[in-house]
Design a protein around this nucleic acid. Sequence first.
DNA 1: AAAATTTAGCAACAGCGTTGCGTAATAGAG
DNA 2: CTCTATTACGCAACGCTGTTGCTAAATTTT
Lengths: 364, 364
Amino acid sequence: MTRITADVTFLRGYNQARVMALGRTGRTFERSTVVEATGLTPQAVSKVIARLTGDGLIRPVGVRRAGIGKPAVVYELVPDSRYAIGAHVARRTLRLVLVDLAGAVRHSAVSPLPDDFTPEQLLDALASGVDAMTNSGGVRGKLTGVGIGMIGPLDHANGLVRGAHGLRHWHDVPLREIAEKHLDLPVHLDKDVTAGITAEAWRHGATFGDAALIMIESGIGGGFWLGGTAHRGAHTNAGEFGHTVVDLDGPRCVCGRHGCLEIVHNHATDAGDIARAARVVAVGVVNLLQTLDLAHVVLAGADLLRHPQTYLTAVTEAVRADARRADWLTTTVTLSSLGADAIAAGAAMQVLDQHYGVPALAPI
Amino acid sequence: MTRITADVTFLRGYNQARVMALGRTGRTFERSTVVEATGLTPQAVSKVIARLTGDGLIRPVGVRRAGIGKPAVVYELVPDSRYAIGAHVARRTLRLVLVDLAGAVRHSAVSPLPDDFTPEQLLDALASGVDAMTNSGGVRGKLTGVGIGMIGPLDHANGLVRGAHGLRHWHDVPLREIAEKHLDLPVHLDKDVTAGITAEAWRHGATFGDAALIMIESGIGGGFWLGGTAHRGAHTNAGEFGHTVVDLDGPRCVCGRHGCLEIVHNHATDAGDIARAARVVAVGVVNLLQTLDLAHVVLAGADLLRHPQTYLTAVTEAVRADARRADWLTTTVTLSSLGADAIAAGAAMQVLDQHYGVPALAPI
DNA sequence: AAAATTTAGCAACAGCGTTGCGTAATAGAG
DNA sequence: CTCTATTACGCAACGCTGTTGCTAAATTTT
């Protein structure tokens, strides 16, 4: 995140990040794999692998005999070498996960939060949860930081909660700063949906194209992965997908407009018509495809996952029928592969990304 | 576009591109300006400036005496040092512009295209138009290439027209390849709306955040500038903004769905109710802001620019009232600053970007 | 056992930005 | 006019990338 000047350290970070991504995606890899994927020379790859091995981030696990010639050394990520903790802050619960360098969720825990909790109450819950997770041997020393995914609006760049929907004590709270002091660890703050789509992108690796995560859980939101990174928008406010109008003459929404996706959807669920609710979401998803041309749509969120198949078939069918009518227009529709851990895990992955992902460059 | 490996030549291109962007945006600049903007050391900036001066891309234009001490040398882009031609291919017309390195439109010309024109007819029109534009002294030798902006669907990466809406002879035409042979120049192919938003981003420079260009001209489309680059989507099909549903029970659209923004809008214009048409577009724009959180919305297109003020006020008012209700949520709404030249000029700028913009890196 | 083939690293190199330091050009003070 | 302080700017050496050229190691095939 901290702006980096384009010197040789950028190259180091960038090429290392590509190797790490390869290790996450494909479990094992060897020098020739990396050469092909990166376009670097074999010698350069040797240097990168030597650096990563020296840092303990990857290790050789064997050799592959492909016939004649010297066998190739096979490498893998060392999952236990680094950890990050992810927190999903919802209105009533705090979910914490411990994620290792390979992206696996090693522990998961949910604890209740007080009604209308204050920043102090969250910090205390965070601190005790983090302590509990790092008790087991040697985790603490390998912890890279804590990622927090929560409802907005918030300011990602400055780690500021501007005012979480439905929580009274959260106006202009510099959560990142106070959490860093309280936990004595680096903290990363992001919207829940953005963290969620990061988790999906991590699991799929370099082949993951433009994508959206549709989350239905006390509101309807969207997280976006565009051009190889999370899209947060000009003010970290992207993703208010539930407040897009799909019915000009529809009922009035809390946001002040009429016929928002969310209010139309909720009317259907309130009437017990989940099938119709799913079809409404499907209309919104097709709208997104028309606008952004996504390669993947991921469905997530507690309310959605109560009827996963209903939503999945409605969206899949709508995508097939209404949006992707040419054979070159392919879009996958899936349920979130991490289930309820998606947001917290994604927040943790963002922390790992700050260390081992592609270094940020200033645009233009 | 061609995938680049992350070696030191990337650094060179990246830092040079930043200096060039500074020159475009602010007319003149000096070493200290660049140091501040890039975070590079003064010595590194000296080297970059020496390289660019050697290539004739920038030149000293004077000195600035800021009081005590040696005066600072002031530099500017050399607009005449490089050119690109941009083409806007519409259903009935071909618009060509000559753009210089600074982004200024030096010549503009419109010629009619035959009804339902063929690729050969377009190529001939292109060739004679390019010849006419490069007649004047010394332009040809400084020409970097030709950019083509046209209606989709198309495949940007492969320079392939998949099948332009409303044109029969345009199914799977490898336009970039055949145009490069025909013109003996590098050719760049993109959707019209994407070219248009590129032009806006060029004019505004580094401070230009996430933005959309709304184009109304035989259909409603959107071009997106996200995270410092154009967003084209997984299959170069982003921007079919007119085919997003805003009225679930609305009239059936040519695309097969009901209540698309475009059909609802066109019903209003057909009834002569431009104000209502503009309000419909405004609903769609607010939907975009909710989804993507944009810093700028630019209005363009022949049909829209017939009633510029009506659309501008409707969208501005909707953005103010419905979407940006907090003081930190700022979005500007403007009319396209290049008018009818926007698409062609943006296509030309994309060609210049291939040479003097930020080099592409493979994502992750 | 020898040859062929593939993998992998050492050494020298080119090209980035960085660091250290010297030089040039100006305004202001004496 | 002279000297000093100040600011701008580049040369030279350096550290770090990835690259190139070449050698060594490990294995299969002959």
